[in-house]
Design a protein around this nucleic acid. Structure first.
Length: 567
RNA sequence: CGGGAUGUAGCGCAGCUUGGUAGCGCGUCUGGUUCGGGACCAGAAGGCCGCAGGUUCGAAUCCUGUCAUCCCGACCA
């Protein structure tokens, strides 16, 4: 492609609307333009990157027995009513009606659709297992779309669905997809990590997420220094271990005045005790039943774990007024002593001695609280967020934490949709059984943004070779110099003959402008033909992520480029 | 949904307090001089000042409403 014909409107300044680096650079480098909040057009360079990502996915999915299909974006309300998600999905689903006042959803996902398709035409175990996938736009009316392509309302996703005869079939399909995903992300040349993930409302089933590692990631991952344990903090299990101060002598319980000290931090300072010796007491409603939830003051309750332990559908934190009604005190003074509510406590609370907690009286806290001696009965469970420095649940070594961008998730759905939508088949013995499903997603457009979040410098994007929009750019320093131009064209055409995707920057611009643009759009290899090196029949070769420029004889430069691309 | 901020040329911004019919830098176009990391000179095009009402002889500027965009929050007392 000649740069003079390529539509890549680069900007010299950072558009004021962009905050995160991928958003800024994709706008500046002329990859995307915004249509509305969370909705973007992909310009030629972006679409080339997306196609590369999609093709890698296709190749690997097809290799693993997947078959690509395309389902409608517009989906009738009735379909979603069958699964109950017309209500459940809530405001996040885009809805529309036609001229006859029939309602439709813009597909946020396709479980209902795929299950319907498969159940209508597969009636025998002979048709199973089946793995179908599509790459398509998804629509989710996010509360707050943000970070450019990272959290859009319209985005491109690969979604795959598997149908199996039994749990064993699903298990082997799941393993295959796990390996497939590892191959896909390895081919993107991104630093990533597969982590254990929470399975959400479905419960009990297995799920893994694929995280591209980047500081700006919205997810926190904990991983073990010694073994291969890695999990999203939402999911990571806390080890059930005793604290170092668990063998103290029990001191007498006392009530202390703590006027206007509401937060853990304030109470900690005021009473001069460490935050990890304060019991944090929260009042929740589990499906409208009040419960008290405890954890150490320096810890955070993990609501996903809590929800799973309590077994409730909905979990909401009470407001201050409700706390006063039920416990007779405001936030900051709540505590678990003499409370007539179910109490759920994090495992660590079991080991806390001579601790501090609210007295259920405004402005007062109890000190030297010892759970067995002083507090009501409570149910212990792993309820907190694991943090860096905690012990690995597998091997007891230290856990570290790192941030990641979730670009893929694989999931054992089980019977959820096959039961709701009655997707049955006859097994080899003539019994009617439900199909067992799995689903497997990859955020395609988010992967492009994540690649930028992970690979950039002050000059612009640094695309990994496998997903770069073009592999090489040939820059004649001065297009009016015939010798330079002819040499550049020659090299460019040789690259094309070898199937290398190249740009010839034939624009009548100063060299600096071309260098700046080449860096900004992030082309991995740059070949410069200028007067200096041309004298000795050489051209300059620069790799985007390296500092040095090497001089290569013109006769051998195309071979050299080919070699680099093949390694 | 709550809080904050911003909408003026393709991009970045000034002007608004104190109303008088719009400006700067970059980019774009023409001509010329240049030519190895975002050149210089001269000239030019480009704006219903987000939209709708209102006040006024007169509104980018004041008032009301509305829409859009961005940030923070919407859970840890």
């Amino acid at each position: 492609m000649k740069a003079s014909q390529l539509f890549f409107p680069t900007l010299r300044e950072v558009p004021s609307e962009a905050e995160v680096i991928s958003h800024q650079l994709l706008l500046r480098a002329g990859f995307i333009r915004k249509a509305s909040g969370g909705v973007y057009s992909y310009l030629p360079l972006a679409y080339r990157v997306l196609k590369k990502i999609m093709n890698i996915i296709r190749e690997e999915m097809d290799n693993s027995g997947g078959q690509e299909i395309m389902m409608p974006i517009i989906q009738p309300k009735e379909l979603w009513e069958q699964s109950g998600r017309w209500e459940l999905y809530g405001d996040e689903m885009f809805r529309l009606s036609d001229r006859h006042d029939r309602f439709f959803a813009l597909g946020p996902t396709h479980e209902e659709m795929i299950t319907t398709i498969v159940k209508n035409d597969i009636h025998s175990y002979r048709g199973l297992p089946l793995l179908l996938y599509q790459i398509q736009n998804k629509y989710r009316d996010e509360i707050r779309p943000r970070f450019g392509l990272m959290r859009g309302r319209e985005f491109i996703m690969k979604d795959a669905y598997s149908f199996d005869i039994d749990g064993g079939g699903l298990e082997s399909m799941y393993q295959v997809m796990m390996q497939t995903y590892n191959r896909i992300f390895a081919r993107f040349k991104l630093k990533f990590r597969m982590v254990e993930a929470d399975s959400g409302a479905i419960g009990g089933n297995e799920s893994h997420e694929f995280m591209v590692l980047a500081e700006s990631g919205e997810n926190e991952i904990v991983y073990c220094s010694a073994c291969d344990y890695a999990a999203n903090v939402e999911k990571a299990e806390a080890a059930d271990i005793a604290l170092e101060f668990c063998n103290e002598e029990e001191l007498p319980l006392e009530k202390m005045s703590t006027p206007n000290k509401r937060t853990i931090e304030e109470v900690s300072k005021f009473l001069n005790v460490k935050e990890n010796r304060i019991i944090k007491s929260l009042l929740y409603f589990a499906d409208s039943n009040p419960i008290m939830v405890l954890c150490r003051g320096d810890r955070d309750i993990n609501e996903i774990k809590l929800k799973n332990v309590v077994g409730s559908k909905e979990l909401t934190l009470a407001d201050d007024g409700t706390a006063n009604q039920i416990l007779g005190a405001s936030f900051g003074s709540l505590g678990p002593k003499d409370v007539n509510l179910p109490i759920y406590a994090d495992l660590e609370v079991k080991y806390m001695q001579n601790a501090v907690c609210g007295a259920n009286e405004n402005g007062y806290h109890l000190i030297n609280v010892n759970q067995k001696r002083d507090l009501s009965d409570m149910f212990f469970a792993d309820l907190r967020n694991v943090a860096a420095g905690d012990q690995c649940p597998n091997c007891s070594q230290n856990l570290f934490s790192i941030r990641g961008i979730e670009v893929g998730q694989i999931f054992k759905l089980g019977l959820k949709y096959s039961e709701a939508l009655d997707a049955n088949f006859l097994d080899s013995e003539g019994n009617t059984r439900h199909m067992i499903m799995g689903c497997y997603g990859i955020g395609v457009s988010r992967t492009m943004a994540a690649a930028v979040e992970q690979n950039y410098d002050d000059d612009g994007i640094i695309w990994p070779l496998s997903i770069a929009p073009y592999q090489a750019i040939v820059i004649p320093v001065n297009v009016k110099n015939e010798e330079q131009m002819q040499t550049a064209v020659l090299i460019y055409e040789e690259l094309l003959v070898l199937g290398i995707e190249a740009i010839l920057d034939d624009r009548d611009e100063r060299a600096g402008v071309k260098f700046k643009d080449a860096d900004l759009i992030g082309i991995p290899l740059r070949i410069t033909i200028g007067p200096k090196s041309l004298q000795s029949n050489q051209a300059e070769l620069k790799v985007r992520w390296e500092k040095e420029i090497s001089l290569v004889p013109i006769a051998g430069i195309v071979e050299k480029v080919k070699t680099i691309l093949e390694t």
